[in-house]
Amino acid sequence: MPYLGVFLDGRGFSSSEIGELFALITVARIAGPNLWAVLADKSGRALKVLQLGALLTFCTFCLVLFVDGFWALTLSLALMMMFWTAILPQIEGLTLNCVRGNASRYGRIRLWGSIGYILLTIFTGKMIDMFSSEAPIYVGAIVLFSLFAVTIFLKEPPREKSTDLQQASIWNKINTSVFYTFLLSATLLQLSFGAYYGFFALYVLDLGYSGQATGWLVALGVLAEVVIFLQAGKLITLFGVKWILVTSILLTALRWYLLAVFASNPIILVLSQVLHAFSFGMTHAASMHFIHHYFGNKFQSHGQAIYISVGFGIGGAIGGYGAGYFWQQGQGAELTFTLAAMAAVLSTLSLMFVSSKRM
């Protein structure tokens, strides 16, 4: 994903077309998670849903190797994204069930995804320098096939018995001011990420850094994420979900502002990437902790699906489209990241209306 903008730029797409494509494929994250969650919750076979999603994600992603043009690429990537939404909630659910919601144990397991991300972003950045902007597609295909192969060796956890009372309680959980506020904050946060996901790699390359340097910068952000995951459980227990989110999202706003104004300074650029520990690492850990304890084991797949479809789907789509509109082939980079910072500030303000005891 960090190099999708580079790949599309190499295929001759304009910044507005890249933003539109990001928005369209992100729309697939609105309906997809809920459909898969219903299937997982009703069948009680989350692992089978995960395996099917991984297989179909790999197959549809490989279409990118054979098609060209805006709509053909958009369709193949949108299908890939829709099937991808079957994967993350099931992995999160299986993990949280295994560790019984323990935030410290969850963080220690989740950091391995970050380690893999670090290695692959550095490697892919080097491949771009050595070969071309097509390299991320081949790397992605290999990774997705490997993911499917690994899921074959996982085991299905015991299914929790359901009751009519449990079935009714999920709607009581959804239809609350606390959950609505949490969704609004998540949507604004993901909206702010539009410029970063769509254009950060291009931005850094335009500033004169090499593909490998870009890979190291992305990897640095994830390395910071690894460190924070090791401490996430303790911090959440000590300060609570609300204040962890408030602090982390405020630091995210600072991060986008630094990118808007001072990205040409290598030290500031490095500092902004270190803040990824909070803008993704802590916000993700705190959000997963909230959803797991708010919905319980039975409906955590459904709760995560709503979170992903609204926050990442709607927020991501608006953020991607808006970033493409304002980017203007890099001329609007400062404005785009400034607007992202403002969205993060609004995300923080929305949480101030929620009592710490309710999160």
Rank of each mutant, 00 (worst) to 15 (best):
M1W: 12
V6T: 04
F7L: 05
F7M: 00
F7K: 06
G12N: 09
F13W: 03
S16Q: 13
S16M: 08
E17H: 03
I18N: 07
E20P: 02
A31H: 09
G32M: 08
P33Q: 11
W36T: 06
V38S: 01
L39R: 00
D41M: 03
K42W: 06
R45E: 13
Q51H: 12
L52T: 15
T57L: 06
T60E: 11
T60D: 09
F61K: 04
F61Q: 05
D68T: 14
A78C: 04
T85E: 15
I87T: 08
P89V: 10
I91N: 07
I91L: 12
T95I: 10
L96G: 03
V99L: 00
R108D: 11
I109V: 14
I115E: 07
I118P: 00
L119V: 13
L119F: 13
L120F: 12
T121K: 01
T121H: 08
T124Y: 02
T124C: 06
G125T: 05
I128T: 01
M130T: 04
S132L: 07
E134R: 09
E134L: 07
Y138N: 01
V139T: 09
A141N: 03
L144M: 13
L144E: 10
L147T: 12
F148V: 06
A149T: 12
V150S: 15
P157D: 13
P158C: 12
R159Q: 13
K161V: 12
S162R: 15
T163V: 10
Q166D: 15
Q166N: 13
Q167G: 10
I170A: 04
W171C: 02
W171L: 10
N172A: 07
S177K: 14
F179L: 05
Y180S: 15
L183W: 10
L184S: 10
A186P: 03
L189E: 06
Q190W: 12
S192V: 04
F193H: 15
Y197H: 11
F199S: 11
A201V: 06
L207D: 11
A213N: 07
V218Y: 07
A219T: 05
L220K: 02
L223S: 13
V226I: 14
V226G: 07
V227T: 10
K234N: 15
F239Y: 15
K242G: 05
I244G: 11
R255S: 03
L258K: 06
L258H: 06
L258R: 05
L259D: 04
V261L: 12
S264Q: 11
S272R: 05
H276M: 06
A277H: 00
F278D: 02
A286K: 04
I291H: 02
H292R: 05
H293K: 07
Y294M: 04
K298C: 04
F299I: 03
Q300Y: 08
Q300N: 14
I306W: 11
Y307K: 04
I308D: 13
F312V: 10
F312L: 12
G316C: 10
A317T: 06
G320H: 08
G320Y: 08
F326W: 08
W327R: 14
Q328G: 05
Q329T: 06
E334Y: 01
E334G: 02
L335F: 01
T336L: 06
L339W: 02
A341M: 09
A341K: 01
S347A: 15
L351P: 00
F353M: 13
V354D: 07
S356T: 01
